[in-house]
Design a protein around this nucleic acid. Structure first.
Length: 350
DNA sequence: AACCTGGTCAACCGCCAGAGT
DNA sequence: CACTCTGGCGGTTGACCAGGT
């Protein structure tokens, strides 16, 4: 029950992927696209189930992945989104280009939850923790199966952003609660949220946030796009404008609405220059960057509509890259073996 | 040096929903 | 309508590592 038929097949490898397997999968998908995942292992010559191939591609091999540590802005955004979406990691990941749901889930479970607890915030309900003896909120918060104020999107907002309690100098105040966007909530909810936005704006002004509100402006507002710690944001000419007051809303599907005009994330990320990280941390290298040009930067391969590389299937220009990928792979892998300095950290090809 | 402990993260498992037959 | 197949998701596991004792 529930088990994929492919998983019954014998002689399927499990566990960590070898570089050779990675290379096979990468080459196959680069050349032909993934198509039907169940057929990928056979076509790519892998002793894996399609599900495993899909996971490996999504979580590790995708060229547009952003590796490395999460920036403070990203962490705050995750907290904000979790307050609205709960444990819907895929939806949260959709708002963080280059990050995977698995990555975010790991970060949440290993790091953010702890931080929130240290700051007296229940990571599940996003409410301030009561005294530890009172109802054991922390323990109750561990039960992920229970619907929470945060996960039940039909609930009215009951709290201010927990991100403001984090050690942040930038609020991520662009995001109205989902219920305001999708569920036609009554005015009081919107009022509550708007009030919280005003408070956040005040906090932000007091803190003199030097990076501007995350996504606080759009091109049509005369803003310019920048990347800080791998996070893209619009730096508006009037950064104090909130998303609410400017009529900009971020939808759950990842598009922005501004007075009837719709931007998609891909529209916002189509600028190849904006894909380059400014902090220059080695750990932030992307796959494409690691492959040193033989595997063009995803942005360079985006179509005019900003489609990412992994949606492109069997393009001629990709076919032509085949040898370069293979050669570069081996070259870099050998370098890795020699230097033992893994660009992706300790777990790279371990 | 050996052991313990906690953190991190890749990968797996089980379930669900949608499409196709 | 029932069944199968497949993709996708969230929860969980276990290997690995670093730091402490």
């Amino acid at each position: 029950m529930g088990r994929h038929s492919c998983c019954y097949k014998q002689k399927l490898r499990k566990g960590l992927w070898s570089p050779e397997e990675d290379e096979k999968l990468l080459k196959h998908i680069t050349m032909y696209g993934h198509g039907c995942w169940s057929s990928v292992p056979k076509l790519a010559g892998l002793q894996r189930c399609g599900k495993s191939c899909r996971l490996r591609w999504i979580n590790y091999l995708r060229p547009d992945l952003k590796r490395g540590t999460f920036s403070e802005q990203e962490e705050n955004l995750i907290i904000e989104l979790h307050a609205v979406l709960g444990n819907r990691w895929s939806q949260i990941a959709a708002q963080l280009p280059g990050r995977t749901d698995n990555e975010i889930k790991n970060l949440w479970n290993s790091c953010i939850k702890k931080k929130l607890k240290q700051r007296g915030i229940d990571p599940v309900t996003h409410k301030p923790l009561l005294s530890e003896t009172e109802g054991g909120t922390a323990a109750a918060g561990e039960d992920h199966n229970k619907p929470t104020a945060a996960t039940n999107i039909n609930d009215k907002p009951k709290l201010l952003s927990p991100a403001s309690a984090m050690t942040t100098t930038c609020t991520t105040s662009y995001l109205p609660p989902l219920e305001l966007m999708n569920h036609n909530q009554s005015a009081p909810s919107a009022f509550l949220w708007f009030n919280s936005q005003q408070q956040q704006q005040q906090q932000q002004q007091e803190l003199n946030c030097n990076t501007g509100s995350f996504m606080s402006a759009t091109p049509s507002m005369g803003g310019t796009k920048s990347v800080m710690h791998g996070v893209q944001y619009w730096e508006g000419s009037h950064s104090s404008n909130s998303s609410a007051s400017s009529g900009i809303e971020l939808q759950s599907n990842g598009s922005l609405i501004e007075s009837g005009g719709i931007f998609s994330w891909s529209d916002l990320t189509s600028d190849s220059e904006a894909q380059i990280h400014l902090d220059g941390e080695p750990e932030d290298l992307k796959w494409s960057e690691y492959l040193q040009g033989s595997f063009p930067v995803s942005a360079a391969l985006r179509g005019h509509e900003g489609q990412p590389l992994f949606d492109i299937k069997a393009e001629n220009h990709l076919l032509a890259m085949d040898d370069g990928i293979s050669a570069s792979w081996h070259q870099n892998y050998q370098q890795e073996q020699q230097t033992s300095c893994h660009p992706y950290g300790k777990h790279f090809w371990r």
